[in-house]
Design a protein around this nucleic acid. Structure first.
Lengths: 370, 370
DNA sequence: ACAGCCGTAGCAAGCGCTTTCTATCGAAGA
DNA sequence: TCTTCGATAGAAAGCGCTTGCTACGGCTGT
């Protein structure tokens, strides 16, 4: 029923070994033989049996890309970019190539699913795994992740982080590309302060994520530098403790990284502190929700309240007014992660590279009214 | 080095066959034995070898989800939804379950890559494949796809279409969920006409895609019904020829499904026909670009020009003014496709279900000025 | 009390491929 | 002319798992 290597071999009048070698191209085969084999492959419409091949060779051509939420363009862009570097040329023939199957796994931000996917990839003996986005700061989970990743690495799987800080014990990885979330957060708030804002609300992401913490820390650094930090006792920054201080801060509201949360958190913020003149959102999507909330309260942007986001997703420039935000080179980072995963590019010195975040000043921020 | 089934068997003092059966749960095993095996699995931190298992069982737990552009939330939402139905419970243990590895493959809209991914999935003996989004209307490619899909189906792979019309020769598939793009397009334009618009520009998607054609056909149906069709001789609709007529239509401009294209196409449209009072965009992303272009020309929305989109992506409601658009239940459709792929849900009668598109009237469309 | 079953467990034969080792042939070196 | 190599091709041993078939007790039925 299904065509096997042996069938091809028979038709090409060679041994299965030779067919395998032609297909893998890692052993000298005379041109005439090769051609004969290739024709047989074509004639029979042969397709390699992946599992059999992976079993025999003890490797596979799967590369996993883990994302928190594929419906969010933040991850979509990175994942898509990574995939461009992994998918191979795709000549359509049954022939091999650098062709890998890049697969995107959607964890939904759940630590359990993250581990499950890693197990599934381990099952498949994945060639590489790219982990994107912020990590959950739960010691137990981090330990489990570290253990799992170590095992994967042991099995020869290349590990690349993209937009995610390396694990505390992170050693067994090829490379980590981390965004300068802290620096970006700091510059964004500095910009607001330089415009004259003094009461700045912050709609933060989920408290347990590194991305959330880093951006928030940058924000607080800027506030402190300007003597505006109203969070308790220099709390939640520099010393890395970060925990409860954030919750005590009346100008900070946490929530998921989505539009709706931005809307509601902003309403809450406006209730708590009606005198804020600017709102910084955890990311652009949240910022959109924040804008909607501000408007629904009858205020104008930026005349009554400035709003800023983070990431510079494609739609941000089209918001009205265009969103001031911090640009993260998502596509470039994703592509680079893909290349690192493929071993096409050398890891940065030390294995860790910090990717700069650029402040994009647009229409949604302005000098406060009074 | 790596732990195998045999190691587990040895430790549990049973045969490999028994371990396999415990793990797969498809054969009676005494509770006490099962427990012993499970403990051994845990102790040794055993992880099944996927390729070996797939080889022996001649099936795999991979499910492929093909998308045109994962950076586009349109696909991200569907893919993510499908994945929720496929990913399984994920109890973290090494135990099996309905657990499949849902993998998202990004074709970038390229027919070659689409086929390549299908081959790769065929290689892996994928359990199912979900194809999302519009298809390319190229006879050669369609034939190649049909052949490829037939082969996959033969090998036992379940084929599900989501938001994509079934192939002309499409038989070997479990189900097709298709969006009522034509009906949505028609209702959208009818809405504009009922508001009093007579000169309506249309920023269409790439000409060779079914989605583009169907939406455009709906648009033209509405125009014709109102006696406004200015495309040559009833061209490009109903009879399905669609080709050149579209290009002759001065009020229709084609381009990719992205923001930039929306911007530029709109500028072109405004140049060609400065008297248009409304612009319908191929989708919401394009609509955003269209809005930007309209504004950059010094016109207001909707006072000077109405703009409408398609899809109702999350950000559309936050546009200013909120975008009138056609809502497609992307999440629901994706989830249903995922269930169909898993065999968790019965296919619709005839294998084809048309999913309704709902008109969402919001602030970006209004009565024309004059 | 004996045949026939049901419930479990083991044996062993692959699944289709890769790869080491060996064999062969012709050309080059001595 | 005989040996030595390099270039190719084949034989065969698995890779780790699944599963049909067989084996073995203890029960039930008569």
């Amino acid at each position: 029923m299904t065509v096997t290597l042996a069938d091809v071999a028979a038709r090409a009048r060679v041994s299965p070994a030779t067919v395998s070698r032609v297909l893998n191209g890692n052993y000298p085969v005379a041109a005439s033989t090769r051609e004969r084999v290739l024709r047989a492959v074509d004639d029979l419409d042969y397709v390699l049996n992946g599992p059999a091949s992976s079993l025999a060779a003890a490797t596979s051509d799967l590369v996993g890309i883990l994302v928190n939420d594929i419906a969010d363009p933040f991850f979509g862009i990175m994942a898509g970019a990574a995939q461009t570097q992994i998918g191979g040329p795709g000549d359509g023939s049954g022939r091999a190539g650098g062709e890998k199957l890049a697969v995107i796994c959607n964890t939904g931000g759940s630590p359990e699913r993250e581990l499950t996917y890693l197990t599934l990839l381990q099952r498949q003996r994945a060639a590489a795994v790219v982990l994107t986005g912020g990590a959950v700061e739960n010691p137990a989970h981090q330990a489990a992740m570290a253990a799992k990743l170590a095992k994967l690495a042991d099995a020869g799987t290349r590990i690349v982080f993209c937009g995610r800080p390396p694990l505390p014990e992170g050693d067994a990885l090829v490379a980590a590309l981390t965004f300068d979330n802290r620096g970006g957060g700091r510059r964004l708030t500095e910009h607001l302060i330089s415009l004259g804002h003094r009461r700045i609300g912050y709609v933060a992401g989920p408290p347990e994520r590194t991305t959330t913490r880093h951006r928030l820390e940058g924000h607080r650094e800027a506030l402190r530098a300007a003597g505006l930090d109203d969070s308790p006792a220099g709390g939640g920054t520099a010393d890395g403790s970060g925990g409860p201080a954030a919750d005590d801060d009346r100008l900070v509201v946490h929530g998921p990284y989505d539009r709706r949360s931005g809307y509601e958190a902003t309403l809450e913020l406006l209730r708590r502190a009606p005198d804020v003149t600017a709102i910084v959102a955890a990311n652009d999507t949240v910022a959109l929700g924040a804008c909607a909330a501000v408007r629904d309260q009858g205020m104008r942007i930026p005349q009554d309240i400035s709003v800023a986001g983070f990431d510079d997703l494609p739609f941000s420039v089209d918001a009205v007014p265009a969103l001031t935000t911090v640009r993260l080179p998502l596509f470039e980072a994703g592509a680079r992660a893909g290349r690192l995963a493929m071993g096409k590019e050398n890891p940065p010195p030390g294995g860790i590279a910090t990717i700069a975040a650029e402040l994009m000043i647009r229409g949604s921020t302005a000098t406060p009214r009074d």
